[in-house]
Structures are given as structure tokens and as C-alpha cells.
Nucleic acid binder design. Structure first.
Lengths: 239, 239
DNA sequence: TGCTTTTATATGTCCTACATAACAGCTTAT
DNA sequence: ATAAGCTGTTATGTAGGACATATAAAAGCA
């Protein structure tokens, strides 16, 4: 039944949600694509677009405002509009508030973080250098111990963020940084934080002299409490 | 010189990009948070918000249009506005066009997909059942062989998508589905596609009787050409 | 009480007007 | 002749009013 519903949603989009701005936004995006505009290219003026689409400048501007928000178009007075390179994570960031997400999505993002951490190993081992390893070690050794959540979050962001940085992937680093608060939120919902047996310092040691598989195993142990939680959750049919 | 520029960017944010709609959007989001509105809660009327913020209804509506796009607010005539649960991936999806991304981001997303595939193993092994394994096998066995890219993409989406489905993570499945076209775009840019030695059917066999580590190794081999490409890319300083 | 009609109201759309920034072309001073 | 300054043009940014439309709530009716 659930699958059937999803299938319906996939093929049958809700008909005209009655908002012109929605349609205009879509049409504009299609237009840009069809004309294969590239970043930097000049776009027609507002009035031209509005009349061409048969809507008021007002509605057009509502749609443009969206595209501007996403960084897809850039507008300056007199100079007109140009297509530009959007920030891929911008739209994601604006919506990532744990308080306004449904539980399933919250759970999905929780798992997403685990997937990222576990999957990072391969790229990490390709990119790591002695220098970056030393920097990581410094971070791990400077960690402030204490039960206070603020410290733990700071440590987590610093250490794991550094891992992504070493992997040389700015987008991934930002992504993970955005995901962490959600992750912490879920953890705190459930129960008191139980730390894994493998610490950040242990992970550094593994990186120094261990293999890729060792690291994966270490990371798994580091995240073990969370995986444990998953196991009890996934086995029994949710909702 | 490049580093100097980055340093400047870090400390000197561009001053007020001058658009009221940007400010209003931010202020509204702050307001919702401060009042700790939850999905379903009624929001003030447009006019009230506009006068409170000291802007025209026009500007306010531009900001609201953005929030509506993200699914953050829902508006109906007469009924007013209510806060609602946004689609976390909606904003991401709207921006995911390989043609308008810079090369670094493209590369980052390419790697992201690899990370996801490699990191999925743990959750996969927690969630997999006999039934889903049979379904996966059916997909792998029905694959149409042929050099045509269309078939390859379809197979990839079907098979790997099923993996995420088995993992029981709808968000992740959607996410991966959105990432795949970007991935394929990068692959096709580089050179002719070289298939890994481990096929989808092999992966199914591993899932049947192998361990988690076996599966990871298999997946790595399946994606080997891409990892190989990464290695040559990451070793030499990129730009 | 239960159904229908009316009314009030908040959003959706359009229009006009003017402010503002930036470019282009001209003028002027050295 | 070149550089500096002035001026008009132009496209976006903002404001405010007007009306359409859907719909919740109230009033009217059986």
C-alpha cells in the first residue's frame, strides 16, 4: 500500500497548485536549460520575460526571487540578470531544522551521517598526507574532556570535519557540518550519550599505522552506540 | 595568492547585498524559530508581517515565495499561512544541474556518491531480508547488457536504488537518485566507461553468502575504475 | 437540528509610480 | 588629448492601491 502510494506520487504530480510563481519558476528553469545558458550569460529583462510568459512583473519577480535565493541567477541594477553558479547546499541548509522535520526524515539523516563516516575511508586513504595527519592528531589531543554536550559537539565537529577536509572535499565537509546538529539532536532525544570504545585518538593511531579496513572497523566501533541503536530500530517494523 | 583571497573571503563577508527580500527571508526564519513554531501552526497575515517588518507586501511576498518553494510554509486563501514540514532535498534538487556547476563541486559530488555506496554496507546488512534480496537479484538478472549509456544508467539506478531501498532510507534513496546523473556526467566527460570487474550479479552473490567486509570489497571493485580515476587526480595538486 | 446561502477575509494577481544604481555618452579642464 | 566630471538613460528595487478568488465562518432557511 505504501509502495503503491509512492508510485502514484512519482508519476502523478499534483495538478496546478494554483500558484503562478511555481509555474513561472519551472518555466524559467526549463527555458534556461533549453537555451543552454551558461553561468555568466545575460538573461532577458524582467519585463520581457513577464510579457512573454503572460504574467505580471510581480509574479515573475517572485519566481526570480527563488532563483536568486538558490544562487541560480544574479541580478544587478541596470546591468540586468545573469545566470550564475548556485550553491548546491544552500537550499539544503535553509531547511535543516530538526524541529520542523518528521521523524522518518530525521532518522534518515541520522543514518546518512553514519553512511558518510563509514564511506569516507577510501577517499581518506587516497588523500591523506603526513602533514594533515599531524594536524588531525593535534586536534584529537587538544580535545577538552567533559560531559558537557557543548564540548562534545565542538570536538566532533573539529575532528570529523578535519577528516573531510583531509579528504579534500569542501562540499562534503560542509554537508557533514550541517548534518551534525541534526545528528546530535537525535542522539539527545534518545538517551544519554554513550561513547564508543574507540576514541578520536585511537582513530588517529589507526590512520598512522593501520590499514583501510582497520580504520573502518575503528570508525564502526567509534560509532557503535549509534549502530546499536539502529539495529534495535530496524529489526522491528517501524510505524 | 589564492590562499590570500580565501582568507579575505573568510573574514570579510560581502556587505549587505542590498535586497530587502533576502533580509526579510532571514528575519522570518528567525522569527519562526524564536517563537518555536511547529508544523501546522498558524502564522500571522501577510499584511501584519509586512507592516511589522516595515516593508511592502510585495517584498514580503517575494520572501514568502521562497519559503513556500522550500515547503517551509503553506498558504491557502482565507485560511492564512501555516508552517509546514519542508522537503529536505527539494532545494538541493533544484540546483543539481551538472552544466551550471563549477568543476570542483562536480568532483565533490562525484566523490560523494562513492562515499555513499561504500558507506552503505553497514546499514544494508542491518536491514536486509530474504525477500528484498530476492527482489534485488531479480533486478540484477534482468539487466539489459549493451554498451548504450541509456541502458547502463537505467541499470545503475535500478540496482543501486534498490540497495538504498533495502536499507530502508527513503531520503538516501532519493538523494542517490539525484546524484547519479551528475555522476554519469562526470564519467562521460573523462573517458569511455570502463566497467569494474565485479558486476551487480556478483554483488548479489556476496550479499547472499558473504560478510560485510566482503561486500565492501566487492563494491570497491565494482567502482574501481572511478576510484582509480580519483587516485590519479588526488595525488597531484589540483589547481 | 441540519442544510443552504450569504458575508467577511486573507491570499493571488495586476498595475502604476517612483527610487536607485550603473552604464554610456557628452562636456569640460588641464 | 586625456582624464575627470556631468547628465541622461535604463533595468532593477520598492511601494501602495485595486480587484479577483477561494473559503471559513456566520446567517438564514427548512
Amino acid at each position: 500500500m505504501q509502495l503503491h502510494e509512492d508510485d502514484l506520487k512519482m508519476h502523478l504530480e499534483p495538478i496546478s497548485s494554483d500558484r503562478m510563481a511555481d509555474v513561472v519558476e519551472m518555466r524559467l528553469r526549463e527555458y534556461f536549460k533549453k537555451k543552454s545558458f551558461k553561468p555568466g550569460d545575460q538573461l532577458p529583462k524582467e519585463i520581457e520575460l513577464a510579457t512573454a510568459l503572460g504574467v505580471s512583473r510581480n509574479v515573475l519577480r517572485e519566481a526570480l526571487s527563488r532563483l536568486r535565493m538558490l544562487g541560480l541567477v544574479d541580478t544587478r541594477k541596470k546591468r540586468g540578470m545573469v545566470l550564475s553558479m548556485p550553491d548546491v547546499l544552500g537550499g539544503f541548509q535553509r531547511v535543516l531544522d530538526p524541529l520542523i522535520m518528521d521523524d522518518d526524515t530525521l532518522q534518515d539523516l541520522f543514518e546518512l551521517r553514519l553512511v558518510l563516516e563509514m564511506g569516507l575511508a577510501d577517499i581518506l586513504f587516497i588523500s591523506i598526507t603526513d602533514k594533515s595527519l599531524r594536524e588531525l592528531e593535534t586536534i584529537a589531543k587538544n580535545e577538552v574532556k567533559g560531559d558537557k554536550p557543548i564540548f562534545r559537539i565542538k570536538n566532533e565537529i573539529a575532528f570529523h570535519g578535519k577528516l573531510y577536509e583531509i579528504a579534500g572535499n569542501k562540499t562534503l565537509k560542509r554537508f557533514q557540518g550541517m548534518l551534525l546538529p541534526v545528528f546530535e539532536y537525535v542522539v539527545r532525544l534518545e538517551k544519554e550519550f554513550i561513547s564508543g570504545k574507540v576514541t578520536h585518538r585511537d582513530l588517529v593511531e589507526i590512520l598512522k599505522s593501520g590499514t583501510k579496513d582497520d580504520f573502518r572497523e575503528g570508525m564502526y566501533e567509534h560509532l557503535k552506540p549509534h549502530f546499536g541503536r539502529l539495529e534495535t530500530l530496524k529489526k522491528r517494523p517501524t510505524s
